Amino acid sequence: MSMQLNRKYITIVFTVAIIAFPIIIGFFMLNKVVDPEEIMITKTEVSPELITIQGGFGDSISKYHGYNISHHDHSLFIQIKGSKFPIRGDKDFNISFTNTYGDIAEIYLVGQDNAKRKIWPQP
């Protein structure tokens, strides 16, 4: 009886591991901040009411999954999140949000390691 119980537990643990592993890997891959050098910006517009940033990724695999914004001394710092996981998301992005930051002088893309690249005004 104990041999059947051990086999049952091993089967359950193995099944859970097979199901959980892709989910965990996918979660971490979907929330990765993309290196600014891998991002192509096609349009950036700043007005007193609205800020719009359009672009995409330099490779054909990456998919867009969101962004984070921080603000300091009339500069915006944007982290683009993406993944190389082949589900969800688009290759291109169109970020548009209300300008609640006031007079913006510069916009930077920022990577995971705080590497940054100025995208507006054009460097």
Score class of each variant (00 low, 15 high):
residue 102 G to S: 01
residue 73 D to C: 03
residue 104 I to L: 07
residue 89 G to H: 06
residue 62 S to L: 07
residue 42 T to L: 13
residue 48 P to F: 02
residue 89 G to N: 04
residue 56 G to C: 05
residue 15 T to E: 03
residue 101 Y to H: 06
residue 43 K to H: 14
residue 42 T to V: 14
residue 65 H to F: 08
residue 6 N to W: 12
residue 47 S to N: 11
residue 111 G to T: 01
residue 80 I to K: 08
residue 49 E to A: 11
residue 39 I to W: 03
residue 50 L to H: 08
residue 47 S to H: 09
residue 11 T to K: 09
residue 18 I to Y: 02
residue 54 Q to S: 14
residue 100 T to Y: 01
residue 60 S to H: 11
residue 10 I to E: 05
residue 21 F to Y: 11
residue 115 A to H: 07
residue 119 I to V: 08
residue 38 E to L: 13
residue 94 N to E: 05
residue 27 F to S: 08
residue 46 V to A: 04
residue 7 R to A: 07
residue 63 K to W: 00
residue 76 L to D: 06
residue 107 I to R: 00
residue 108 Y to G: 07
residue 62 S to T: 15
residue 26 G to P: 00
residue 11 T to F: 08
residue 85 F to Y: 14
residue 23 I to A: 15
residue 117 R to Q: 11
residue 39 I to M: 04
residue 60 S to E: 14
residue 123 P to M: 02
residue 37 E to A: 15
residue 31 N to C: 09
residue 10 I to M: 06
residue 118 K to W: 08
residue 70 S to C: 04
residue 56 G to K: 03
residue 66 G to K: 10
residue 13 V to C: 07
residue 64 Y to H: 07
residue 86 P to R: 04
residue 40 M to Y: 13
residue 23 I to P: 02
residue 73 D to H: 08
residue 61 I to Q: 08
residue 93 F to A: 03
residue 80 I to P: 02
residue 113 D to Y: 10
residue 17 A to E: 02
residue 74 H to R: 07
residue 31 N to D: 14
residue 83 S to H: 13
residue 34 V to A: 07
residue 15 T to C: 10
residue 96 S to G: 12
residue 90 D to H: 07
residue 55 G to S: 03
residue 28 F to K: 01
residue 86 P to S: 10
residue 87 I to N: 00
residue 110 V to Q: 01
residue 99 N to I: 09
residue 6 N to I: 02
residue 47 S to M: 10
residue 53 I to M: 06
residue 77 F to P: 13
residue 105 A to D: 15
residue 63 K to V: 13
residue 84 K to P: 02
residue 86 P to V: 11
residue 72 H to G: 02
residue 91 K to A: 06
residue 7 R to C: 00
residue 97 F to Q: 03
residue 70 S to Y: 12
residue 34 V to R: 10
residue 97 F to S: 00
residue 104 I to C: 09
residue 23 I to V: 15
residue 46 V to C: 06
residue 120 W to M: 02
residue 19 I to Y: 11
residue 103 D to K: 10
residue 26 G to R: 09
residue 65 H to Y: 07
residue 46 V to T: 09
residue 96 S to P: 03
residue 17 A to M: 07
residue 1 M to L: 06
residue 18 I to N: 03
residue 108 Y to A: 05
residue 102 G to I: 07
residue 120 W to T: 04
residue 45 E to T: 15
residue 72 H to V: 12
residue 75 S to D: 15
residue 118 K to L: 14
residue 23 I to Y: 13
residue 4 Q to L: 07
residue 96 S to I: 14
residue 1 M to Q: 04
residue 37 E to W: 04
residue 28 F to G: 09
residue 48 P to Q: 05
residue 33 V to E: 13
residue 40 M to H: 13
residue 113 D to T: 03
residue 80 I to T: 13
residue 117 R to N: 04
residue 107 I to L: 03
residue 69 I to R: 13
residue 58 G to A: 08
residue 33 V to A: 14
residue 95 I to S: 05
residue 92 D to L: 03
residue 8 K to I: 03
residue 88 R to K: 12
residue 25 I to C: 08
residue 42 T to F: 07
residue 84 K to R: 13
residue 39 I to C: 05
residue 40 M to E: 15
residue 113 D to S: 04
residue 8 K to H: 01
residue 2 S to L: 00
residue 28 F to L: 05
residue 54 Q to Y: 01
residue 101 Y to K: 01
residue 122 Q to T: 11
